[in-house]
Amino acid sequence: MNLFQKTIVILICGFLSGNGVAQPQNMVTVMEGVYIPLYGVDSMAVKVASFHMDVYPVTNSEYLAFVQKFPTWKKSQVKRLFANKSYLTGWPNDDSFGDQLQPNAPVTNISWFAAKKYCECQGKRLPTIDEWEYAAMADESTADARKKKSYNQFILGWYERRNTYNEAIGSTFKNYWGIYDLHGLVWEWTSDFNSVLISGESRKDVDKDSNLFCGSAAVGASDLMNYAAFMRYAFRGSIKANYSIKNLGFRCVKDVEDQP
């Protein structure tokens, strides 16, 4: 199987470029590394393996093409287990996103199940929280810009802007890896969003509530000053997989097959 995968990569690689790492279309390679996440494992560094990531979030027109190919994910046909009533709420019908939403704006009001299925049908998958955070800590010139004032100001400035979900993909900055729009347009689903162990309900937000969470003493923010990231984790911890939300979209990633 390993040889099999390798050969495919070599073949594609040969067809496309003749050398270097195979890079699927509209994806870039994020090189492996180690980072310390906001919610770390006892504040320990996490190793992230190299992966390919979509350069842009999935757009309305791309998602329309998907539901036309896979009708079970159309607005009127999706099962409630997999998407709540807000699913594609801005779309006037099954086969159009209407004239309010831009074709090249990120698709939003998408459930986790829908995002996951979309990626699977492209031969891809959703990124893990670690992969997403790792790629998203870059600014234009640095792989880890989290300590930079400008980096944090950009994100916090975005949190204050309204209706950025309807802006075109590629309208924010191109980061160190060559990826656009990780910050600035929409928040994005991750495969393991439900690994964040903080309750979204304020009444339940008692720190280290050992009744609700087993082993919760081990989960604490390693850098609470990182408010921008804290907001993302709090958001992930508060949503459910069938939720479809106006400012939540997604993009896909893919394994790098021929890691040394």
């Binding site: 287990l81 439900n194 690994s195 964040v196 459910k240």
Partner: peptide, 10 residues
């Protein structure tokens, strides 16, 4: 995700 159970390996 269906049960709204969150978990993480620590």
């Amino acid at each position: 995700a269906v049960l709204a159970v969150n978990y993480k390996k620590i």
